[in-house]
């Protein structure tokens, strides 16, 4: 599944006739496989769907990778801090996490985007900052048990500071779990981003995005279902492929460590 996605993102931009923006109102709403110049057809404005799809998937992935990087960074730092130092800072950080989990992410993002805007970079940051709690909880629970282990006690007895213990012992020991979680979360973030774009609050036109393509195609559901089908399939391939990958990574990890 990811192979198709890779071809779409990496190869398609170099095909002849790659063009996301040129409108051709004489050749609009073309079905797939009708015209060799537009393999997947054209949209209502006559733009080439294959080209737009390629860019849309690339944008989705870039946004998701950026956001996951931020959330993994924030969540891991929070989890390490809360789990190692415990006490009041732990209570405060985890309460913030609990509250955030109780707010529907999409709703939260809608309100944030409405007040702050939806420039791409801002969108990445907002997506990242609303998705850290999972990492925070997982890392914290691992750290709570790791810090009682004797190699941590031994390091402290040898004069290691909290910072040393966190950087040299705790972080390396939680990292593989964070990577597994991050792989899974890419799919989650792609879903959220495409939902936002679908209601017009995510990636802004003219940049192509999967959510917006589906929204625009919805109007032609009867006459040109491929306008929805094609981006839908792309979303499924991206999210399903990532899920599949992260599950396999998880299984292989747990096998190799036992």
């Amino acid at each position: 599944m990811l192979a198709i996605v890779a071809v779409l993102v990496l190869v398609v931009p170099f095909l002849p006739g790659f063009d996301t923006d040129t409108q051709d109102l004489g050749d609009n709403l073309l079905a797939p496989l009708q015209n060799p110049a537009h393999l997947l057809g054209t949209d209502a404005l006559g733009r080439d769907i294959l080209s737009r799809l390629s860019v849309a998937v690339r944008v989705s992935l870039l946004v998701a990778f950026g956001a996951v990087l931020i959330s993994a960074l924030v969540g891991t730092s929070v989890g390490l801090t809360a789990g190692y130092f415990r006490g009041r800072i732990d209570t405060v950080l985890m309460s913030i996490g609990d509250i955030q989990l109780a707010i529907p992410v999409v709703l939260l993002l809608i309100v944030l985007v409405a007040t702050l805007g939806s420039r791409p970079l801002l969108l990445v940051v907002l997506l990242g900052l609303t998705d850290w709690v999972g990492y925070g909880r997982v890392v914290r629970s691992m750290v709570v048990s790791l810090r009682e282990q004797e190699f941590v006690q031994a390091a402290r007895s040898a004069g290691a500071s909290g910072f040393w213990v966190i950087r040299k012992h705790l972080l390396p020991n939680v990292l593989s779990q964070v990577v597994i979680l991050a792989a899974f979360e890419i799919g989650v973030v792609v879903t959220i981003e495409s939902s936002l774009s679908f209601i017009g609050l995510g990636i802004q036109p003219p940049t192509p995005s999967l959510g917006l393509m589906i929204n625009e195609g919805q109007r032609y559901l009867q006459s040109n279902p491929s306008l929805v089908f094609v981006p839908a399939l792309a979303i499924f391939l991206v999210i399903g492929g990532i899920q599949f990958l992260s599950q396999n990574v998880g299984v292989r990890r747990s096998r190799s460590t036992t």
Binding site: S194, S195, I214, Q218, A232, I235, F236
Partner: peptide, 9 residues
């Protein structure tokens, strides 16, 4: 693996 809004459509 299918976002809810997409499944709805």
């Amino acid at each position: 693996a299918i976002p809810p809004y997409l499944f709805g459509i």
